[in-house]
Design a protein around this nucleic acid. Structure first.
Lengths: 348, 348
DNA sequence: CTGAAAGCGCTTACAG
DNA sequence: CTGAAAGCGCTTACAG
């Protein structure tokens, strides 16, 4: 066993790990050759390659990322940036699902994910400073509100970015991954109508988010398809929160007491609607059929398991990571739209 | 406006930002002086300090962390490490709360958080390699199961670690932050008894977790206090999941149909118990009072808002970060136990 | 295929 | 208080 001689060191600092020089000495080659092996072993003789790999193993060598970054001008890490207020983010199960998926997808490439939140102006400034300084190679941007002030700054910093959901109000190419919101909405509304409902209401997302807009489009298109007139009394705008869903359904019940179904643009809002419907004495799906959107974790555990539209979160995160790495590698920003799927449970 | 001259660069790479040399030239001082200003401005004349700060501002200079890390042998970042299977983690609202709190607390110090999960053996190996290579300065460890295999490896890597919850089965000093599980449990069980309940059951956490063990201790101690004999039929072991809570209460209902209250060691399990109780036709809190633990986000939104014990998550994350930074600075590992609080809602 | 050497951008004793 | 210089650990043309 060749233990590196322990050196004296100050409080709690780990011992100096072996460097490329130690490996080179052990393998009997130059540092350049060791480095080439590290880069993939091109232009290295089989013998040298073997010797270096053996030395690496023997010494337990691990590359020093700071040194590598300094010369390559790449950090080797990626930011997961939330521009929503934190509370909002962490209330929404979709976000956590996405975070999990992205962490896993990046781990495949041995790229660590840096979690950053920027819900207010000082945070935004700090984050932009940090990102613009080149401390990450790219950004997975989560937040879909229009006029996101960070988008422009990110663009100026010329940092590769992939957005989750279509970035509204942003001219210029920006890579994004999204589920097919409009088609998903259409599928749900058709399901509601096909199961005999005629007064189909909707609770939309905020109208400055793609999901808010697109899912409403889908609702209107299907109405038109079926020759059902569009009735404003059947539309309430929500905010994607549980409380918002509760409030919205109460408004609808006031405006259009005869509604017999409601398409809710998120499961979390649908869960809120369920509470209010129960309180109002309306049974689900008997009196009112409720269709959600997302198939997030609340869908299955809601008091009445939700019929909903599944967003393929795993694929969304995979595609986001794939697109980001491609951009980092020099490719042009691209867009990916993924299909949704109707999941039938009890609520409709 | 002094725009740095744009240089040619390959696909999508950001322009080379100004370095300390540019700042030194602009300020008319040496690089050493600029660096000293960056380090806090000690031993720098007011005039030089001002000139350097002006130059930094003018040039939009941001320190290159890779270069700094290379010389300081510090990464400037910290890992948030989950050793639970990912599903478990992301189902549990406590974890997300903790993640949010730690991100915020670290952001105060401008330290990015690297999210890493290690739910299986290959992941553990990869993560340990990464951490041992010195890519982070310390680890916030989240997972409280006994015999966590990473603990020993982390110790060998001599990396500062702070655990969330007391690490069971680990000899030697290891810093941790925890709520006072036993006292919290006692407060809840006393509340249950004081409100007239006599057949108080409990659903515990896994017995290889501190919360699982300590909260059960608390339950037993209060029984003893009140001279109530301990009855094994009133105890079911859960796994902190919603489904586990559901199954546990069903077992209890079978073993001890006369139970009139149950102390559940987590809100998520309590939420599951609520479902099963409703199905069994038992009203809450009328037939069965239900007390939870955590005051996590499910507590308020459960079908019957949960009376529970609040864990001070914000303070827990703050203290974890504080302790970790202290250790990184060379202090010895310490322990912090935080008080809990009874939160009365509808379920008991 | 391989080695010698420059250079990435900073920090930190060391003199003065 | 300040400058000159070494050095952190790697990568990458450049010769050969």
């Amino acid at each position: 066993m060749t233990e590196p001689a322990p050196r004296g060191r100050s409080a709690g600092r780990p011992k100096r790990p072996p460097t490329i020089i130690d490996v080179a000495a052990e393998a009997g080659v130059s540092r350049g050759t060791v480095s080439r092996v590290l880069q993939g072993g091109h232009n290295v003789s089989p013998a040298a390659l073997e010797a270096v790999n053996a030395a690496i193993k023997k010494l337990g060598y691990v590359v020093n990322l700071a040194a590598r970054s300094l010369v390559t001008q790449r950090s080797g890490s990626v930011a997961f940036l939330l521009t929503e207020p934190q509370e909002r983010f962490f209330e929404d199960p979709n976000f956590t699902t996405l975070l999990r998926g992205c962490t896993a997808a990046l781990a495949e490439h041995d790229i660590p994910l840096m979690l950053m939140t920027a819900g207010n102006e000082p945070e935004r400034r700090r984050v932009i400073r940090y990102l613009a300084a080149g401390h990450v190679d790219g950004v997975l941007l989560v937040s879909s509100h229009t006029g996101n002030p960070m988008l422009e700054q990110l663009r100026q910093a010329e940092l590769p970015v992939v957005s989750c959901g279509k970035p509204l109000g942003h001219r210029g190419r920006l890579a994004y991954v999204a589920a097919d919101d409009k088609e998903g909405a259409k599928e749900m509304v058709r399901h509601l109508i096909d199961t005999g409902h005629r007064r189909v209401a909707t609770i939309t997302g905020p109208q400055d988010t793609p999901g808010g807009v697109e899912r409403l489009y889908g609702y209107r298109e299907v109405l038109a398809e079926y020759g059902i007139p569009y009735d404003e009394q059947l539309v309430a705008v929500g905010d994607y929160s549980r409380a918002g869903g509760e409030a919205a359904i109460e408004r609808l019940l006031g405006q259009a007491p005869d509604l017999d179904a409601v398409f809710v643009a998120s499961d979390l809002m649908a869960d809120g609607a369920l509470t209010a419907l129960e309180r109002a004495g309306r049974s689900v799906p008997g009196d009112v059929a409720v269709g959600g959107f997302d198939d997030s974790s609340v869908a299955a555990t809601a008091r009445i398991p939700l019929t909903t539209i599944r967003q393929p979160w795993d694929r969304i995160s995979e595609e986001m990571v794939r697109l980001l790495l491609a951009q980092i590698a020099g490719e042009e920003p691209a867009t990916v739209i993924l299909p949704t799927e109707l999941v039938i449970r009890d609520s409709a």
